[in-house]
Design a protein around this nucleic acid. Structure first.
Lengths: 242, 242
DNA sequence: CGTTCTATTGACTCGATTCAAACTAAGTGG
DNA sequence: CCACTTAGTTTGAATCGAGTCAATAGAACG
């Protein structure tokens, strides 16, 4: 059974990062998967769990988060279509954070065993999937820089820059506009600032005419200006073309 | 040529995380390496570089850092003996941050080719080394939680807790005391706070009798209290025993 | 023995938080 | 179709954690 169309975004994602042979692509598309639909704000996996499947996003957004001090939520990273949000559990077996949908999501679940079997046959694909986990790690490293050194405006701007580049890498947000069901509280928990302050930052971004943000639609008005305000340089995303 | 004694800390480190067969251990110890000595504050690798070797710490500490806005330094993570600080470049080829010694360091450089050859022969060792890169990523994720949600005192306490646990995992800091040539400015750049404030935090930790800190010697006085102040739970380090 | 780090202290400032309240927009059910 | 909820955004005022500036005091080093 070929899951070509379902694996389209993943193949697109991998292609943005590395050259894949037809054979590799077929090996990926041959993996069995189960597609499931989720509503907004649904927990897909919980901290401490031992998942048996990896979760590939076909449509929508996920985020990984963890509680500090038992109550303060920190969002670690957001994930876009084509991402496998929990690829790292393949070798870590226990999840150290939760995975939640941001708005409605279509996700494909691939058994660990299927991925391991596929990787066992191809050093090249092992390299590619290992690399994917390392790029996810690089994204988190860059977020450490943001949280440690950039002020609240730069943090929010940086997050928007990153998402738009990652979306474009898989063929979305072509016009630097995209739909994402972020509440300001979500952004706040990612940027490590309060909701009230997030609101002020968003207004400031609008005032400077860097972005438009209406409901769940974000449109970038001034891409260069936004990157400058964000101190954003996309190198860490390891994209081939850009 | 067997580098048994030089590879002692690495084997110890891997053993803390996973069971290794004798065969695996020999395969690791057979890898060629070049040992080099460094002084304090020396750059071992620079952002943008394409290293051909991985850097295994035999003695001393390294840290990875990156500049935000061209001038503000953020320390991403510290590395202790037994760590391979830049294992991720094996599959990422370009370094997105710098690596610097914190005080004098003895390091072993292992050619990428040697590691790749070794991994090609053993799916088990591929798993172990992949896992190592994922644990490094988990450490950075936890640091995101600290920077985003914990106040300055908890951050500094968390850093100390983590280092002491990682040292103990490789047979160091048995008595919850250890020598580390941190300046308060280093801590500040890791915790994302100013040096002045770092000083006040350190004094507060002393005042609460959680730690003693004289010169480069840190002694934990109240391990439970420190963990509580830090909101520290070591699960994310993925250690087998603890 | 001066030079250079590093640690420490005080005063002032500022970015961000907190608390509180008002204002939307979008359901939901009678 | 309108009251009633509920979730999310917006605004203002008071407060606080942490930054900045500046000066001093030790410690380390050549």
């Amino acid at each position: 059974m070929e899951n070509g169309s379902s694996y389209f975004r993943l193949l697109r994602r991998l292609d943005a990062v590395v050259e894949l042979s037809d054979e590799d692509q077929h090996a990926i598309a041959r993996m069995p998967m189960k597609v499931r639909n989720f509503g907004g704000g649904q927990l897909i996996a919980t901290e401490g769990e031992r998942p048996s499947h990896c979760c590939l996003i076909l449509d929508g957004y996920l985020f990984r988060s963890k509680l500090a001090g038992g109550c303060r939520r920190q969002i670690i990273s957001f994930h876009v279509p084509g991402d496998i949000a929990d690829l790292q559990v393949l070798h870590l077996d226990r999840l150290d954070h939760s995975i939640t949908t941001l708005g409605p999501v279509v996700a494909a679940f691939i058994p660990h065993a299927a991925i391991k079997d596929m990787l066992a046959t191809s050093p090249r694909l092992t390299h590619v999937f290992w690399r994917e986990t390392l790029i996810t790690a690089a994204i988190v490293r860059e977020w450490v820089i943001s949280l440690g050194q950039r002020d609240s405006l730069a943090r929010v701007a940086h997050l928007i820059c990153e998402i738009v580049v990652r979306l474009r890498a898989v063929g979305l947000a072509r016009d630097f506009g995209f739909a994402i069901p972020w509440t300001q509280a979500d952004l706040a928990d990612a940027a490590g600032i309060s909701t009230v302050h997030t609101n002020r930052v968003v207004q400031e971004l609008r005032r400077r005419e860097l972005i438009e943000w209406e409901g769940r639609l974000i449109q970038i008005r001034d891409w260069d200006g936004l990157q400058r305000a964000a101190d954003f340089r996309p190198d860490y995303l390891q994209l081939r073309k850009m």
